[in-house]
């Protein structure tokens, strides 16, 4: 089911959290709201869920063309996974997952056997079979995250909303769970919107990335678009590593070509201040000569670095083939 966000405003007192936000989330897509803290991304997610209400008279939220702006969170049919999971500590995992089914109005509620079956299905889906009798505090962070997901999915939501889904996990689990969530999304094919401040996470996971800053959307596009064609300097700096040239232009480390200082087409010469080779790649830090401040970061291949016999302190030339100036 598609989500359509139409010119939403949100203020808290004098603070503007969202300033005229419009966004289309296509049916079945996995969309990332990416931005630094305070950019408004979590507020937007909560407004889509109905956990916050947009300013009166501002815009509308449509699910599959139907205006849900006035529908309460409980009736919107969204699955929401909280950043710290918000699992109910006094209930078992099975009870947690079954909660949304238990509280349904009597006429729509499944019977006990059906609920048990559904919970079993969900436990298998999130690969937590056999943990149904445990309590949340007996689970690891990654397991809790998946319980929260199963609980949100139990009510067969029309859209899935995740607030910093990997924020509270350590780096190793993060990576695993990220990959798992991508596969999982491809299996269930549910329109999913998630909030993150981690650009790598957004680029690796999402079909569509929405970059937010200071209550506004900076740019929306596929990860490839956003990375290759950043429209503003903010997006440039926020996504991936980038070198800012003194004239305000940007260039990514992999776009810079290493040459010998005397070679043709050298834009800048500089001294190698740090060299690090990892597998087939090499990271070269270059301090430009002629009084320019700041180091330039260059990603080259190991082969090239070895071919040029680069070492710390060498003077080399840099060529900038495709320097862009954001609008």
């Amino acid at each position: 089911m598609s989500i359509s966000i139409q010119s939403i405003h949100k203020t808290f007192g004098t603070y503007t959290a969202l300033d005229d936000i419009s966004l289309e989330v296509p049916d079945g897509s996995l969309t990332a709201l990416l931005g630094p803290s305070g950019s408004g991304k979590t507020t937007l997610l909560r407004i889509v869920a109905g956990l916050e209400m947009a300013d009166p008279g501002s815009g509308r939220i449509l699910f599959h063309g139907n205006d849900v702006s006035e529908v309460t969170a409980g009736k919107r049919g969204v699955g929401f996974v909280f950043q710290h999971y918000a699992l109910f500590p006094h209930m078992t995992i099975a009870q947690n997952i079954a909660f949304g089914l238990d509280v349904m109005p009597r006429d729509r509620r499944l019977n006990r056997a059906e609920i048990r079956e559904r919970v079993g299905e969900l436990l298998r889906l999130v690969r937590l079979e056999g943990l149904d009798k445990r309590r949340p505090n007996e689970l690891s962070g990654g397991q809790r995250q998946r319980v929260a997901l199963a609980r949100a999915l139990a009510i067969r939501p029309k859209v899935l909303l995740l607030d910093e889904p990997f924020g509270a996990l350590d780096a190793q689990v993060r990576k695993e769970l990220r990959r798992w969530l991508r596969q999982f999304h491809d299996e269930i094919n549910l329109t999913t919107l998630f909030v993150t401040h981690d650009q790598e996470e957004a680029l690796e996971l999402a079909d569509q990335v929405v970059v937010m800053r200071n209550a506004r959307i900076e740019q929306t596009g596929t990860p490839q678009d956003i990375y290759d064609e950043p429209r503003t300097s903010f997006v440039y700096e926020f996504l991936g590593e980038v070198n800012k040239l003194p004239d305000g232009r940007y260039i990514r480390p992999h776009e810079i070509e290493l040459r010998f200082a005397a070679e043709e087409g050298v834009d800048v010469t500089g001294r190698v201040s740090h060299l690090f080779v990892a597998g087939p790649f090499a990271r070269v830090s270059v301090s430009p000569e002629h009084g320019r401040r700041g180091e330039l970061e260059v990603w080259a291949s190991r082969d090239q670095v070895e071919e040029m016999a680069l070492a710390n302190g060498d003077v080399i030339g840099l060529h900038f083939p495709s320097v862009k100036k954001p609008g």
Binding site: A73, K75, G79, A86, F88, H90, V103, A152
Partner: peptide, 25 residues
Amino acid sequence: SDQEMAAVTLGASGWQMFRRITLPN
């Protein structure tokens, strides 16, 4: 109020939320 919010998104009524989430806590 995260737990109460979670209960809301799962469709619980006010009373269900109070009795099953808040009160045990």
